[in-house]
Structures are given as structure tokens and as C-alpha cells.
Amino acid sequence: MGYVEQGTGRDALFGRLETAETPEELQQLIELLRDHYSVDHIVYHWVNSNGDQYGCGTYPKAWVSRYLERGYLRIDPVVQGCYQRFHPVDWKRLDWSGKAARNFQRDAVEHGIGNQGYSIPIRGPNGQFAMFSLSSNCSDEDWDTFTEEHRRDLILVAHYFNQKALELEPGRKPEPSQALSPREVEALTLLGVGYSRAQAAETLSISEHTLRVYIESARFKLGAMNTTHAVARALSRGLIVI
């Protein structure tokens, strides 16, 4: 059971991410996400400790082959600045002062990658490391406004994208999906039947802050962008009953 989410609005796209079953669907989704956020490019890309890579995204083919051919992985300040870390990075903050980095940047701009970028590093299981990057051609002010406004969404979508990519990776055993704890089930159930946060917190004898953290955790385990979404998913998976 479940419901099919249609369309290209934010919630519909996240719904489709949850139900995606093939790498082709991921590629299609990353293109739709690019259009939805009105950026020039989005790229998802992971590396493992052997240096193997996998990715999908909207970069022109010419740029991808040039990147590999020139060995830009070793020069790219974005990769250097994100690898094995976990804070989101505005490309402007990186060190582009070296000659190699400046040439790389010029080449990237010439290939239409954009002069602005934002990357979210992701720590996956067993040393897996992934990056979700958006780039565009615009002013510093516009980019700051964009990243500020969408940062929360982008961080979540980056992580959900990674979970899905891992799930679809050939030969990988599915990670056991984290069950919700009884406390998370209770919290979602109360919100699902229409309690306010304050009422739910009082019923569970916890602070509202604690409730928000439990709900945030449950949302992540359910791959949901917001609480309504989390309740709907928990219901459709039979995790809660209202």
C-alpha cells in the first residue's frame, strides 16, 4: 500500500525519492530537483576508501570527461574541503588562491558549472563518503539568499539521496532500516491525531524541546521532510495506528 506522489513540487519530489527503484529514476530526480531549485546544476557523488566513484547529476558530459581526464579530483578545492568532513561548504569559503585551483575554476566556469556552489558532505556507513553539490551562475548576494533559505531542505535531501543511492547500489545488502522507538511512535501518534506540540510534550512528560528532537529523529528515519509527511509515512508503513 502507499500513495503515489505525482508532480514536481517539493513534496512530490521527496515522495518520488522515497519510492525510486532504479539509478535512472535517481538521475531523473536530480534533474527535477535542479529545475525545482532553479540552479544550474546538482551533482551527487560518492567515493569509497578505494577511490571508486559513483555519481549522477546534471553536469555536461564534456565536463565530466574533462574532469576525469585532467585528474581534477586531486585539485578540486571542493573535494579537498569536504572529504571526510561533515559541515556544509559554500564554495566561496574555500581556498582558490593556488594557480592550479584558479585554472580549474576558470575551466569549470567555461564549462557552465557556475561561479557559485554549495556542497553538503555526507558520512555513510563503513567509510562511505558522499557529496551533494549545487552550483549556479549568480551574484554572491543571490547565492547567499538562496542557500540561507533552502539550507535545511538541501541538507535533508542530500542525506535522503545518499540513503537511496546506497540502497540501489548493486551487491549491497540493504541497511536494516532503523525501527522507531516506542517513544517516537507515541510522539508521532499524538501529533497525528491533532495534538499540538505543547499538548504532546505534556502528555509524554517531556519538554517541547525534547519532543522536537524526537520528532526530528523520527523524520530522518522515515526520510520525511516535515512532520505531516513523517506521520503519513509512519501510517502507510503501519508503524503507527491512528
Binding site: 541538507i155 542530500a158 532503523q178 522507538s181 516506542p182 517516537e184 528532537v213 526530528e216 529523529s217
Partner: peptide, 11 residues
């Protein structure tokens, strides 16, 4: 933590 595994990229 009430048995809750606290997991989120926002925490």
C-alpha cells in the same frame, strides 16, 4: 534518551 536513537543531519 527514552530509548530513542537520536539521528538527524540537523542534530
Amino acid at each position: 534518551t527514552d530509548g530513542v536513537r537520536i539521528e538527524s543531519p540537523l542534530i
